[in-house]
Design a protein around this nucleic acid. Structure first.
Length: 425
RNA sequence: GGAGGAGUACCCAAGUGGUCGAAGGGGACGGUUUGCUAAACCGUUAGCUCGGGGCAACCCGGGGCGAGAGUUCGAAUCUCUCCUCCUCCGCCA
């Protein structure tokens, strides 16, 4: 959520920001109109309530002195019922105002390049050499099936399309990646590990920005008000909903493994083969709560932290900065990490690192203050995948495939797999 | 799933319809005393949020006693729903 004061005082700047990310800039005028209506009515109601408070007090005193208060009470009856009517109207206007405010995406940071879609993203840096294979690179799903470590038929039987069963060394490799990522972030990068519920309530989803706008992307429980998280960002960011940090505590850094659940509505034709786009996948997420003054430095280090696991695995990747048109709803600035997929001859997203500035913090009321007398203000929240486990699994199969159909296991993972160095057919 | 009990400020806790603008205590902070510490004594401790006015440091008002609705001229107090915690029974990893 944007700062209402910013919308009131600087509507043109807000419109400009919305337009640059291809969002509906008329939201601003609609907001201002309803906001005006809301504040006008609020003043009216508050005045009436002030009167009610004063007269109620007076009635109390009259009763104490055993005076007759019937006339005043009768008068107050009218006032009170009028207040009640206006309160209801106020509530309706407020709901409309919130609807508009919740629909408004974050504004891009000034350093974000203008652009309309992924083609306008900017390559920031490239790491590692694209593997040169002296045979035709095979796609990861084929390799996985042949090695007997991925099974799509069984997954379809028990769940449906866009699910996968890992088997044997495959299951162990998935688990090894999770442990490896967590170990790096905990021991080397200074994050605190958490493990949190994946079933969350509506407030949490609103807090990080998934709701109300992206309801159709979520899996929702039918009989209970629970949603399955699309990312651990939701659970972890909301750990501190409606609370206030001391400035000395910041930055607070968490890493969290969780399964993630996405309906993938609207991507029916895309990535139907393999494990790139699943309804359920594993991810280790990094989340930071920071002082606004340092949040952009923290975004750089968060991105480097995510990169570090790819470097250790020896997977070639590049970092791109998303252009305004490709930014996620809540983000002010995003770097995507894209890992090399030989069979497709292209880089593919494996991590997305964003600074949300105060957008989520305002929705979720996550604040900090300096000392004991400071006025609480919203923190900045950041997060990034550190990294997506399934996609990393696929990248390993593709980048470490051998002509004989086996796959070399990157050295850093071997201790997690009982020392084996290769998956053989 | 069933039966009870509880939720008041940083913590404990009083308050069953009207000066509650919430008693009292603890802790914390400030002061007096002191060579220093402790004790004692005095004082402060409702934060927060929303609106309005100066548009700065302030002033005025609304809200706020777990959350939300309701009853009432008026609710911490009465009614309903929900949440969390505790005790017991049942079931379960």
């Amino acid at each position: 959520m944007l700062d209402p004061k910013q919308i009131r005082n600087n509507p043109d700047a807000v419109k400009k920001g919305l337009k640059s990310r291809k969002a509906d800039a008329t939201l601003v005028d609609r907001f201002l109109q309803v906001d005006e209506e809301w504040r006008k009515l609020l003043s009216e109601i508050e005045e009436m309530k002030a009167k009610r408070n004063a007269v109620s007090d007076q009635i109390g005193q009259m009763k104490a002195k055993k005076e007759d208060a019937t006339a005043v009470i009768a008068e107050m009856k009218t006032l009170s019922s009028r207040i009640k009517e206006l309160d209801e109207e106020q509530k309706k206007i407020e709901d409309r105002l919130n609807d508009i405010a919740y629909e408004m995406p974050n504004l891009p940071h000034h350093c974000v390049p203008e652009g309309s879609d992924a083609r306008d993203n900017i390559e920031v840096r490239v790491w590692g050499e694209k593997k040169k294979l002296d045979f035709k690179a095979r796609p990861h799903d084929e390799i996985g099936k042949q090695l007997g470590i991925l099974n799509f038929e069984q997954a379809a039987k028990i769940s449906g399309a866009r699910f996968v069963v890992y088997r044997g060394v495959g299951a162990a490799l998935e688990r090894a990646l999770i442990s490896f990522f967590l170990d790096v972030h905990i021991k080397e990068n200074g994050y605190t590990e958490v493990f949190a519920p994946v079933l969350v309530n509506k407030q949490a989803m609103i807090g990080t920005g998934q709701l109300p706008k992206f309801e159709e992307d979520m899996f929702k429980c039918r009989d209970d008000e629970f949603y399955l998280i699309p990312t651990a960002e939701v659970s972890v960011t909301n750990l501190h909903r409606e609370s206030v940090f001391n400035s000395e505590q910041l930055p607070v850094k968490y890493c969290c493994y969780s399964p993630c659940f996405r309906r993938e509505a609207g991507s029916y034709g895309k990535d139907t083969k393999g494990i790139i786009r699943q309804h359920q996948f594993n991810k280790v997420e990094l989340v930071k709560f920071t002082d606004p003054a340092s949040s952009y430095d923290e975004l750089e280090s968060l991105t480097r932290n995510a990169e570090s696991v790819l470097q250790k695995l020896g997977l070639p990747y590049r970092v791109v900065q998303l252009c305004s048109g490709d930014l996620g709803f809540a983000s002010a600035k995003t770097y995507d990490l894209e890992v090399w997929f030989p069979s497709e001859n292209q880089y593919r997203e494996i991590s997305s690192c964003s600074n949300f500035e105060s957008f989520q913090a305002r929705r979720a009321a996550i604040r900090f203050k300096v000392g004991s007398k400071g006025k609480p203000e919203p923190v900045h929240t950041l997060n990034g995948s550190g990294v997506a486990v399934g996609r990393c699994f696929a990248a390993i199969l593709e980048n470490y495939q051998q002509q004989d159909g086996s796959v070399i296991i990157p050295e850093v993972l071997r201790p997690y797999l009982g020392g084996i160095d290769r998956i053989k057919p």
